[in-house]
Design a protein around this nucleic acid. Structure first.
Lengths: 351, 351
DNA sequence: CGGCAAAACGCAATCGATTGCATTATTATT
DNA sequence: AATAATAATGCAATCGATTGCGTTTTGCCG
């Protein structure tokens, strides 16, 4: 109760002394080393339990030079995609016997850098990162790579070679989303894009353009609305801009769901029928897709699986198992989820 | 690039040797100890930067017996409330110079216990917990409290005295939510409750009952629908049950938003007008409240602030500043957020 | 220039667990 | 029963930083 009760922890030395054996034997016994007799092992384990002994991971880490700790660096923890990603990482890391330290950059490059330093100081075994929106300079990651600490990027990754990453094929996903709209009969398709220096957004934009070209639809620059954060507010602004065009678009492929939902709400407020006058598809397949009316079509983005894949990737690197260049990059599958917001043909109602 | 490049880290010994001074001096210089000369400090700092020295937090922790690490134990990371809570904890902890290790119990008591052991092994400075839904036995927390490691409960806490916690006044919040419905003219109010062994749900239920009594409305047990996880599916079931009653309720106070949204959807599918025939209010004020149509009234639950408050509480305990019994429990403010789902009087439209 | 206090710095132990290399106890072999 | 062989266990250094206390250096005054 009072402040100063720092009962010292039981250590292997305490156990050793009580059993009149050496600390080395205790250490080996606890880890089931083969060269320790069964009776000794049993005695040690029993006393350990009896005294409430708990290994000191810090001391162990220092000696073995292995922290068994994964570091995570993301923009914001409280985002649907990110929190699912983290949930996946935590699960996979724990199952492999690792702890997880988490940090957030708030999308600020400077904070990202500071946090990376702190993670390094903790001597993490591996780092899993989804870049801050701001980040364009990747030099602070060399601190890890130069010291043999695996760095695996997830979702938002640097635009360069020789990195390990887990991602989705944003180009293809965007292509499919766009073609889906086209197949529904849309011909004036707008695109709401995110910050272009982030590869994921640039790829989604490219996929959109490629789909238009393949279907012989002219690419109209005015229909490409450049956003940045793709927040709800930004989505509203973009929707306003898009619908002010003459003629207005008959479809929108939005690079995330948050902004797409704003677009739906704005369009509805203007009395525009969705999907009849305006078909909309988002990206991520956030839970809000099912809540909004009409439900929002989207691209399923396997967040938790990406986290698990990132951990596996990191473990493979640590085990020295990544040899081929192709193994450096893991691409997970996405798929279009069709809901009412883009279902002009009524294919949902049929079955 | 190849596997075996474990360039050994630069240590204070390396710096010491190069400067022909002792490691103790380097250590003190880096920490700005007053008994070290200015020129020495400068020289040390410069060489440290030049050689890319980074302190080994593990070694430091071992020696000082301070890990500067907060442990978090929650049910699921990817839940709106929880992820915001964690975001708040991470922020406050970092600002106070602490790392954050995160674990999730998946609402399984056994996993919670295992994770707690692992956190203890990491010698965390303090623990912040939101209990697993399953948990009814709190004995594994004594491992921490007995060793002087602060444990602060957030949101879901044990039903006992002598614990530190950060919470909201669930009774009052529920009372206000219920009275709000009554003031809107409702008289047959249903309640969707969560697992009763969790104090937060029991308190919400009590608040609901108290509000009815105060307003001279008979408490009808059939109108209290007992849920457990209050998932979307469960919300659907409860809504079905509630609306099958004769006569059906004219309002629902649901102990979370997820289930409330399900209720809205179910009611709409049955052609029931909201809020005219059925007024609904949820709890948490999740983002979906604004997305669903009609927008869902709710109780604002300050997740991130609760996380920050929990960190402050833990730091205060560590500093030996918690003396009074009252200081052990921090209660944050909530408020009713009125939206269309319960606005029968149209007060929203007026201004 | 001697003397002394204050300022700088070094020694060596310490934190708790791990491990290479002995050393001792036990069992097997002939 | 003596010796080889094997199984068990112990010694002591180590990981990197910190710290109480002792030692050296510097600065200042008479």
């Amino acid at each position: 109760m009072s402040k100063g009760d720092k009962k010292k922890d039981v250590t292997i030395h305490d156990l050793a002394q009580e059993l009149k054996i050496s600390p080395s034997t205790v250490s080996r016994a606890l880890r089931g080393h083969s060269s320790i007799g069964e009776k000794t092992k049993k005695a040690v384990r029993e006393l350990a339990k009896k005294r409430g002994y708990r290994p000191n991971a810090i001391a162990s880490s220092l000696r073995t030079n292995q922290s068994n700790t994964f570091g995570i660096m993301v923009s914001w923890i409280n985002r649907t995609f990110i929190s699912s990603l983290i949930a996946g990482i935590e699960k996979a890391a724990r199952e492999a016997g690792n702890r997880v330290i988490i940090t957030q950059s708030h999308d600020i490059a400077e904070l990202e850098k500071e946090n990376l330093q702190a993670l390094y100081d903790s001597r993490i075994s591996a780092l899993i990162v989804s870049l801050a929106m701001e980040t364009r300079d990747y030099s602070h990651f060399s601190l890890f790579s130069k010291n043999g600490i695996p760095v695996v990027f997830v979702d938002r990754f640097p635009n360069k070679k020789d990195i390990h990453k887990v991602h989705i094929n944003n180009f293809n996903a965007a292509f499919e989303a766009t073609e889906h709209l086209i197949h529904q009969g849309c011909s004036r398709l707008a695109h709401f894009g995110g910050a272009r220096h982030q590869a994921i957004y640039e790829d989604r934009r490219s996929g959109y353009i490629a789909a238009l070209k393949k279907n012989n639809i002219d690419v109209d620059e005015k229909l490409i609305l450049q956003g940045n954060s793709l927040s709800a507010e930004e989505g509203l602004m973009l929707a306003e801009q898009a619908l002010a065009l003459a003629p207005p678009p008959d479809a929108i492929f939005c690079a995330n769901d948050t902004a797409a939902v704003s677009a739906i709400r704005y369009a509805k407020s203007k009395g525009i029928a969705i999907p009849e006058q305006l078909a909309i598809i988002g990206f991520n397949n956030d839970p809000i897709c099912e809540i909004i009316d009409p439900p929002l079509s989207s691209i399923h983005h396997p967040a938790a699986e990406m986290g698990e894949a990132a951990v596996k990737q990191a473990l493979a690197i640590l085990a020295g198992k990544i040899e081929t260049e192709s193994a450096r990059s893991v691409t997970l599958e996405t798929h279009v989820v069709i809901r009412a917001s883009s279902d002009k043909l009524g294919s949902l109602a049929k079955p």
